[in-house]
């Protein structure tokens, strides 16, 4: 059993939990994910690692309620336990392959949308620890829905965008990308985009306009998370890849987002997903 040592409600549908999982905490790297199971009846759910502390033996996850099982996770309280918490899974971020010298020259622009902000955090923090302060765009529908902004400000130059203009740039993250790059003339050499699939699709397209190579982190459906089931397959440059072992990060210019979105909704209308099934995130579409 894996105990929840702290819980924070970040917005009505989003919570952050620190989970005691020493083996995962000892091996976790930015970009990786875990598979959790709430209880004996629970589904195996992949969640991106948002932070980790090898000394305390804890791993931080941020979950948004989108269906029955994510709702069940968010109903857990401090002191409760996950039946299973396996990982770290997937390949770490490509940034980790760079040497210190190469890193210092990099100008990475992170683009985070909604619940995708938390998974950007470990990558931005890692860069900051290696002497680079990246730029991070965080987008949300309205300023009540921002998460991880304070944490992010400690490790990055943060640029906020809200659809309703309640804070920061008035518009979508794609508009803020245009603002920073075209109007303010800021220079970047690559873009890491994490958020809802639809937002990643358009942000990757926007980045391509500026000739920026992109990485996107996919949150596909999975069962085992170790390459066995193939539920997470995604077309990347016309080739089928498994998100769990080949990803979760892929070249945003090559991912077939329409297929990925269709596959992500495969069980949306399944009778077991007895939970408001039709709330599509519109924050960045």
């Amino acid at each position: 059993m894996f105990e929840i040592v702290s819980k924070r409600v970040l917005s009505p549908a989003i919570t952050e939990m620190k989970v005691h999982a020493p083996r995962v905490a000892a091996s976790a790297k930015p970009g990786q994910f875990v598979i959790v199971r709430v209880d004996e009846e629970g589904e195996r759910i992949p969640l991106t690692i948002c932070d980790y502390d090898p000394e305390a033996g804890t791993v931080t996850i941020v979950t948004q309620t989108v269906g029955y099982s994510s709702g069940k996770i968010n109903a857990l309280e401090k002191g409760d336990s996950f039946a299973d918490f396996a990982g770290p899974l997937g390949r770490p971020s490509d940034l980790l392959d760079l040497t210190e010298e190469e890193l210092k020259k990099r100008r990475v622009l992170f683009v985070a949308g909604g619940v995708g902000t938390a998974p950007v955090y470990p990558q931005a923090k890692w860069l900051h620890e290696h002497g680079v302060t990246p730029d991070v765009i965080i987008g949300a529908k309205t300023n009540d829905l921002f998460t991880y902004v304070e944490e992010m400000k400690k490790v990055a130059n943060v640029h906020l965008a809200t659809d309703d203009g309640s804070e920061g740039f008035h518009g979508m993250v794609t508009g803020l990308m245009e603002q920073l790059i075209e109007k303010e003339g800021r220079e970047f050499d690559s873009c890491v985009i994490i958020g809802p699939m639809i937002m990643m699709k358009f942000a990757a397209r926007q980045a391509a306009r500026y000739g920026l190579p992109t990485m996107v982190s996919l949150n596909a459906l999975m069962v085992d998370g170790t390459g066995m089931c193939g539920a997470c397959r995604v077309s990347v440059g016309g080739e089928t890849k498994f998100t769990c072992v080949d990803g979760p990060e892929f070249d945003g210019a090559l991912v077939d987002f329409d297929e990925a979105m269709r596959r992500q909704n495969m069980y949306r209308n399944h009778p077991k997903n007895h939970h408001e099934p039709d709330k599509e995130c519109k924050c960045n579409g």
Binding site: V223, D224, M228, C229, G230, A231, R233, V234, S235, T240, E259, R262, R263, M266
Partner: peptide
């Protein structure tokens, strides 16, 4: 068409 919705590996189907 192998990535259409409704196509599964036997591994996925049996694991579920």
């Amino acid at each position: 068409g192998e990535n259409l919705n409704g196509v599964f590996s036997a591994n996925e189907f049996l694991t579920r």
